[in-house]
Design a protein around this nucleic acid. Structure first.
Length: 271
DNA sequence: CTTTGCACCTGTTGGC
DNA sequence: TGCCAACAGGTGCAAA
């Protein structure tokens, strides 16, 4: 999926076009996502005016006076603003029709995403309540990571990708941040000293910041709200670079399976 | 409680 | 060319 930089880029792209605008209705062509799309979405949204768009981890929250539309992009999801008369293609599952000539379209080939109406306070929703610290929150630092790791022994890459620990870091940026911190992805969190936790927190924030500046990473499905791709894949240090020389020391980058995911690291820079 | 592996789903790629 | 296995931005859940 889109990780934090892709979700945030989407949010920023939509914000100026949506806030203050009214929804005229919604069309659900295929509500079979990770969870069924809220029934009667059309009735819930009709006439409602968008107040704000927020992000929590990899979730987007469209705020209305009447409630919130919670959206997750899964692995292959994408939100785009398109002309109202643009014909729907095969994986265009939901259209939110806006006043004016445009609609907000959710496209998601793998259907791991979600679109749910939340009536009460969004923070109380089960999917959001257990989420961990935001990487750009001031509470996020080496000390916080070390505290969260207490009593655990999982591999640090797994730990970083756990949204109940830190939000927004997925498979690409976990590999990238660990490279910049010089930490081996398989290292147990029980064997990381304080100074290295500091390095890691800085590396996570720095990696996400640079990805954000590049408009995110486009491997295949992801695109910004206006349809343009992200460019971070061109500056990745290790992700997708198996066999290529490490940009720092020249050693070939290694790819291996960790859990069910591919992990990339430099055997000589990361210990 | 923690850790591990599966499940969900479709499309693309690479090897034979 | 065709076929099939492996792999792709995630994460809730069951089992141990």
């Amino acid at each position: 999926m889109p990780e934090l930089p892709e979700v945030e880029t989407t949010r920023r792209g939509l914000l100026p076009h949506l806030v203050g605008r009214r929804v005229e209705g919604a069309v659900v062509r295929n509500g079979n996502l990770r969870w069924p799309v809220t029934r009667n979405l059309d009735r819930r949204l009709r006439g409602a005016k968008v107040v704000d768009i927020r992000r929590r981890g990899k979730y987007l929250l469209f705020d209305f006076p009447e409630g919130h539309l919670l959206v997750h992009l899964g692995m292959s999801g994408r939100l785009s603003l398109v002309p109202r008369d643009q014909p729907a293609r095969s994986h265009d599952h939901v259209d939110v029709r806006l006043e004016g000539a445009q609609l907000l379209r959710l496209t998601d080939p793998r259907r791991f995403g979600a679109m749910l109406w939340v009536a009460g306070p969004a923070e109380d929703h089960a999917l959001l309540r257990g989420l961990g610290v935001e990487p750009f929150d001031e509470a996020f630092d080496g000390a916080a990571l070390q505290r969260l790791a207490r009593g655990r022994r999982v591999a640090v890459k797994h730990f970083l990708m756990d949204a109940h620990v830190v939000t927004g870091v997925g498979n690409i940026y976990a590999s990238e941040a660990l490279f910049h911190a010089g930490i081996h992805p398989l290292r147990s969190v029980a064997r990381i000293a304080r100074a290295r936790w500091d390095d890691l927190a800085i590396a996570v924030r720095d990696t996400l910041t640079r990805a954000l500046a590049a408009g995110g990473t486009t491997l295949r499905d992801y695109a910004q709200a206006d349809g343009s791709p992200g460019y971070f894949q061109h500056e990745s240090a290790v992700y997708g670079r198996a066999g290529l020389p490490c940009r720092r020391c020249g050693t070939p980058i290694r790819m291996q399976r960790q859990g069910q995911r591919s992990t990339f690291h430099c055997p000589s820079c990361q210990k």
